[in-house]
Design a protein around this nucleic acid. Sequence first.
DNA 1: TTAATGGATTTTTTT
DNA 2: AATCCATTAA
Length: 766
Amino acid sequence: MPGHASDPIDHPLLHNLNAPQREAVRHARGPLLILAGAGSGKTTVITRRIAWLIEEEGVHPGSILAMTFTNKAAEEMRERVERLVSVPAGQMWVSTFHSFCTRILRREGERTPVGRDFVIFDPSDQKSLIKQVLAELKLPEKQYHPKKVLELISDFKNRCLLPEEAREEALDPWTRRVLEAYDLYQKGLKNHRACDFDDLLLWTERLFRDPVVQAAYGERFKFILVDEYQDTNRAQYLLVQHLARHHHNICVVGDEDQSIYGWRGADIRNILDFQQDFPEAVRIELLQNYRSTEKILDAASQVISNNSQRVEGKGALKTDLGVGEAIHFKLADEGRLESEWVVQRIQELRYLDPDAKVAVLYRANWQSRQMEEALRAQNMAYRLVGGVKFYERQEVKDLISYLRLISNPFDLVSFRRCVNAPTRGVGPTTLGKIEAAIPEGGTPLEGLAALLRSGELKGRAQRELGKFLELFRRAETEREALGLAGLVKWVLQESGYLQSLEDEATLEAEGRIRNLEEFLSAAAETESMGLRLSEFLDRITLAADTDQIEEAAHLSLMTIHCAKGLEFPYVFVIGLEEDVFPNRNARETPEGLEEERRLFYVAITRAQRRLTLSAARRRRVMGTEMLSMPSRFLRELPSEALTAPIRWGTEIYQAGEGVRPGSSFSRGAGGGSVATELQRIRSFFDKVKEVPTPSSHEADPTHEPEPAEKQDPNAFAPGTRVKSARFGVGTILAASGRGDGLTYTVRFDHGGDKRIMARFGGLERG
DNA sequence: TTAATGGATTTTTTT
DNA sequence: AATCCATTAA
């Protein structure tokens, strides 16, 4: 509680703030945990706190470090602080974790395997490298799906494990092979002088293990602030710990109910355990919501109360914005009708309020298509966020590959890309020859030069590749004079890329040229900010879609993940069906389900005035017609918050009631006997999971196998090899539940994890 | 070497 | 339905 006498009530930095917000702003030294509910004025508090430190505590801006997850958040934070303080604050470090790490590595990188002049690999570069590795190890992509393999590698990296350190986790053959791939993949990155996204964190964390480096930065950053702390993974957590160790002035801000990046390695326990990490921490809860009306908040808190992974003893969100409108729900017969209905509602509210800002939110990107079709049919303008990103378009990537190779001649992935864009008659054969000609420790261009000298190539290839090589020679000398934008334009022309698109003379090519022009102006803009080529390239790879959302857009279509941190007067959430939302793959584990629920919570709390939910009874998914079941989250909505009870066909589907037995099982999706059986098993799973799991989470590895063994002499401990008639041979990863609910997670040798119930699965020791 | 064809496979979310 | 891949024809 802030005292009265000493309270400088009228301090401008405390203006219009409630009591806990003021307390947070004025907290100067020592660890601070700010639990900031949705819409609780978090950014205001953070920025004013930083300003307070500078203005009132006399802290030098250069000793402040603030970490965010998106560039947009970082920019906004910096701008707002700069407006609040009277001194120049340009020396503050306000950035995303990833750009912070990039900055550190560009300074200290000679201590890491990739040095200081690395390129940042984006997901498509990663994919082509891992494919190469898998081919080298003769691992078939069928079983070692590049995406799956990269996921596991990313998982290891997020937990700061290098290949040799992850060995003890590789109990089964599949993981062991992936580990070999991981090892080769890292070597490949090193040869390319490249970091993937995860490496940025990983190498920086390694760097900070060195007491000298750690002390240098730990001393420098006297005040550290981490936004969205609930989304930090192990690497980010350790990074923060290394730095905070020195001054203990660590302020973390977050909301465990909005933790939606578990699949990316985020560990919700980081925020849940903050007070254990820093026992002297002060905890402040921001519970006053300034965004939504009561009905919306009631629905949100009712939904989220079904989760067990929450901070203990946290209060509920409050609002002064009045009761507000009840939540609408629409069930359409078919997916197309659902989007048409939504479009109609948008048109109606547009008619009443032409400037209304509307968002349509969905679980997965594919769901945007139907909305787009319906909108286009009505000639309505919209902004689609996500999907194929600008910097990932083919033509843009082609151009970037030239720039990357100019910036870092070791980048073989980029070389491969641009050497045949536009086509220069280089196929796998020629490419193989070039790569074979690369001298030990040399660059691809040196390999190409050697091959050209040998005179092995003939005709078009020899001629074109000669010009190609010459291009890079000239780039070296002209780079400085041309400047960034000049260089981009020069490459576009001299490479013949622009010409080849012009020759195509199709509508598509025209669009690509436009994109390249847009890229050129982005380069010009960057140049005017005084940035150089390598910095431009960093920015491009680390740019996210969400960074470009104009809040001014009238109608936005985006995933819920993209919508985090945003607010809209009118929000539609579509596709509230089982297997869509909650997503089919997330439903398998209690943790996955809780994360889906948090996602729903995030979706609800985006709405300021009106929230509309919708679903479709039938829908085409991947070309086949599916019957859908209502999302279980619909049942968690309080009836008082809804305009009408939710009906699904003839059933009333509402809080506490559930679907009456007997009716739901008979109408299985697809209707076949296998599907019916599957559904029976699924609903069984669901019942099992409805029982709140008493935080079995922490105890998992040590305690779980024990009770299982007592119950059943045939129980399998993690690591046991088992055989299943349906899936083949695999290794037990974990066990959960007991008695009839005893369920194993099994990693099968052909790849892929499955959760199998001991009772049905027919697992044998194998 | 490249374009075209047919078949398999896919949809979770992203710095 | 739409994309991605591998094989085949030119």
